[in-house]
């Protein structure tokens, strides 16, 4: 399976655009190490299965687990999940590509996603994104050469009361942003400080 097929092909509509998915290489595989759950992850896997009457239904939480274990859902990871859960590979790929929070490419250590939807837009999201572009020297969809930062636009993060805002990875929200705040945020992350 090529990365191109993973990203596009049948699943064009909600997949990531083909050009943003790099070809797999040894380099990127190293990122995740061996593609197999360790003992702890296997325990978590078994626990997940208990929440659903059929195994297939556990696919999304298992993909989350795999993403936390391996950093992103490379073709190898998807193939491992497909074997583990005894689901067709095409099915696993189909689900992985449908949901935007499942990474189909390696991400920088800090994945900054700026909400650019309406309430954030009304309160200056474009200025925030612009400041980040300048500060990091990358455009949305790109990662810095030192693999520290990835930048993206997000569609709606459910935080309009504290707009503009951004999300770091699948974790933290940083709200009520200003250009100064966001520059400060990058500096802190650069130094590895808590934000």
């Amino acid at each position: 399976m090529t990365a191109d097929r993973l990203a596009g092909g049948l699943y064009r509509k909600r997949g990531v655009p083909a050009e943003s998915v790099p070809e797999m290489s040894e380099e990127q595989n190293k990122d995740g190490g061996a593609v197999e759950f360790g003992a702890e992850a296997l325990v978590a896997y078994e626990e997940i299965l208990t929440h659903y009457p059929e195994r297939r239904a556990a696919l999304m939480p298992v993909l989350w687990l795999a993403q936390h274990e391996f950093g992103w859902l490379s073709p190898q990871v998807l193939s491992y999940v497909s074997d583990l859960m005894e689901l067709p590979l095409g099915w696993v790929e189909g689900v992985a590509t449908f949901y935007t929070m499942f990474y189909k490419r390696p991400m920088g250590k800090y994945h900054l996603q700026v909400c650019t939807n309406i309430s954030c837009y009304l309160r200056g999201a474009d200025d925030i994104l612009g400041a980040l572009r300048r500060q990091l020297g990358i455009a949305p969809g790109e990662t810095t050469p030192d693999a520290k930062f990835s930048l993206d636009r997000a569609e709606w993060l459910g935080s309009c009361g504290t707009a503009p805002m951004l999300q770091i990875g699948d974790k933290q929200y940083v709200e009520n942003l200003t250009v100064e705040k966001v520059i400060d945020l990058v500096a802190k992350l650069e130094r590895g400080e808590e934000v």
Binding site: H51, R56, M60, P61, L63, Y99, M101, W156
Partner: peptide, 27 residues
């Protein structure tokens, strides 16, 4: 009560999309 985490797709708010998603499918 089981907590099921979505993964970024607006259409999962639509109730039958949500149902498909819990079943481990594209929504």
């Amino acid at each position: 009560i089981h907590v099921h985490r979505g993964a970024g797709a607006y259409i999962c708010g639509e109730e039958t999309g949500l149902i498909e998603s819990i079943e481990g499918k594209r929504a």
